[in-house]
Design a protein around this nucleic acid. Structure first.
Lengths: 349, 349
DNA sequence: AAACGTTACTAAAACGATTTAGTAATAACT
DNA sequence: AGTTATTACTAAATCGTTTTAGTAACGTTT
């Protein structure tokens, strides 16, 4: 029982394949009203479904895009994906989702695979190790949008959230709550550009308020040295009164550490973190977070990509920076009557 | 600057298209060693990438499968997807991910779209309103695997987790901790089969231990009547001492309610929930949960689907039921020295 | 009545691969 | 020497669409 194809419809309706094809493409002006009805009926009866693969081959367009995320288990990727999906669905595109796992080989092979599949474009949170490939494709006119990571050596469309501003705001808020001894916990290793901006935001806020930088408050941790580093941080002579964590992995580690060591948030330690977490509001002390506009990053990337795909010009690349939002809950030591502090002038300025 | 195609490679290498094609399909026995080297080099030089769309058309196989989940924002879907992705990647398949949002129209149009795209098979958490369609496709020999939801009217491969056992265990655990007044919170509305099993598990455990059923402890809530229902539940004369929530949405609502009303978990109210949550261990009282084997549901579904795709026989449908796992943390009122209770015999039996 | 436009179609050539059937040249066997 | 096998290829058909160029029939101008 093989699939019914255009030819079958044509034969049963007593017309040529061309006419059926015109019908499928809604160019009804090329056929009589009778014929049109007839074709319609036959398609219905036969439950005919056009073969998109054949169509794609002919028209050289698949109406499919590829999305390469770091890890679909990560809420950030998940929300971005959903944004992409929703926007694409509405514009008639499908999305092939790929997990690169921050592995540049996997990333490369996904890019190549997607191209062999003739996707119309790619949205990618790039590792940064395939920039040459990406740049080359871009030069050939292949639509690509980068998100989440910034690379100034590759001229391509990007959509980012304002990491500096977000981090700055978070730390500024802590300062306005009266904190001066503010720690930073970040993952070690070659600093992915965006993470660097968050660290810069931390320094920037301290600087603005003339708070001297204490390097013993700045910890770059790895999975191995994590406990040691946190011990160093929280068990030194003059412990910080607040911590800022630059991503949700760090957040979970720090929170776990504090819980295990019975350090009360926010009374003994205020916490402000980068990236909202689904359950952030149900924690013992609901977390104050700087939330990225994840869903919008997705829709915006998709919009930019589809624009590129559908307009056949190749304009200069575009960068879109979306603002982050500080969501004040309780882990920063917020208390009802502390609201007034929000408007105090810079402390030492 | 158009793409380089098979023909270009053939010309430059001075052979026919057929030979290049044989090369691409690794049938090296059909060409001389010289020729083989030459083709290899030309492909390298030209950066030739085969067009998978053309290939798919010819061989009638896309090496792509479709996955339709309820909502990618939901951790359950996310972990399943990841399982599917990982398994497929390793077997050389790609996955198109779709969100049906529990909307049967969306679901239907996704199924149709995926078929037009000629995917080799579909993995789907079905809404249950397109069972006729699914059954028809299955009959035609189109590979489909259902997961997460059980329908006895459709003869198709399924992979499920043992919802009854999971719920039973959760409630049994509560009973073993000494609770007798155990409430159930579930979403109202036509009971999706799996959810029903969880409810049955609740009743089953009560029955086994001869605990009389108090219907005022069983609440089916909607978004509208939520607060009223929870008020009824927690403010009645003899309040329950424990609650079991059947999914994570309910969990969040109940936890939020308890927090707002300052009811302490687990001292004033023990809580055991269905579905693990990413931050469950960081909550004020780390949650005791029954966790579904989400990742395995994904890999198993993918494995079953690919088996169906690659063996061209159509055996009787298969149902795989994976066990859930009770993860005891603290919200159930667990205390170090309560462990002994685990082994007491059924209380009233 | 010749010329031109419309209307309602169709035949055939793509799209870029795979595959089948065939062939020419050489080697091996009887 | 004649037959058969093997090696190393190629030509052409095919997959299921879209699209271009063409045409036959009829109506409308001039």
């Amino acid at each position: 029982m093989s699939k019914v194809k255009l030819k079958d419809v044509a034969e049963k309706a007593g017309v040529s394949k061309s006419t059926v094809s015109q019908y499928l493409n809604k160019r009804y002006e090329f056929m009589g009203k009778e014929t049109r009805k007839r074709i319609e009926k036959v398609i219905e009866d036969l439950r005919y479904q056009p073969n998109e693969v054949a169509r794609s081959l002919k028209i050289k367009k698949t109406n499919t895009i590829g999305v390469i995320v770091a890890n679909i288990l990560h809420p950030f990727s998940t929300y971005v994906s959903r944004g992409v999906e929703d926007y694409c669905q509405q514009r008639g595109y499908n999305v092939i989702l790929c997990n690169a796992d921050n592995d540049s080989n996997k990333e490369k092979s996904y890019i190549e695979m997607l191209q062999m599949k003739q996707v119309d474009g790619i949205i990618i949170a790039a590792t940064g190790k395939n920039n040459d490939l990406i740049y080359r494709e871009r030069e050939k006119g292949f639509p690509i949008v980068l998100f989440d990571r910034y690379f100034d050596d590759v001229e391509v469309d990007m959509v980012l959230s304002d990491n500096y501003q977000g981090a700055f705001q978070a730390v500024e808020h802590l300062i306005k709550m009266g904190h001066k001894n503010i720690a930073l916990v970040a993952p070690e290793g070659h600093l992915l550009s965006m993470r660097k901006l968050r660290i810069d935001g931390y320094y920037g806020a301290l600087k603005k308020y003339n708070i001297p930088i204490d390097e013993s408050y700045v910890k770059f941790v790895t999975t191995e040295n994590l406990t040691n580093q946190l011990n160093d941080l929280f068990r030194q002579d003059h412990v910080p009164t607040a911590v800022f964590t630059v991503n949700d992995l760090m957040t979970i580690e720090v929170l776990t550490y504090l819980k295990e060591n019975n350090i009360k948030v926010p009374d003994e330690m205020a916490v402000v973190v980068f990236d909202d977490l689904p359950m952030a509001s149900l924690l013992e002390a609901p977390l104050t977070v700087v939330a990225q506009p994840t869903y919008e990053i997705g829709t915006t990337s998709a919009r930019m990509l589809i624009e590129r795909i559908e307009s056949k010009v190749k304009p200069k690349h575009e960068q879109k920076i979306l603002p982050c939002q500080l969501i004040v809950r309780q882990s920063c030591g917020f208390r009802k009557n502390a609201e007034a502090n929000e408007n105090i002038p810079a402390l030492n300025a």
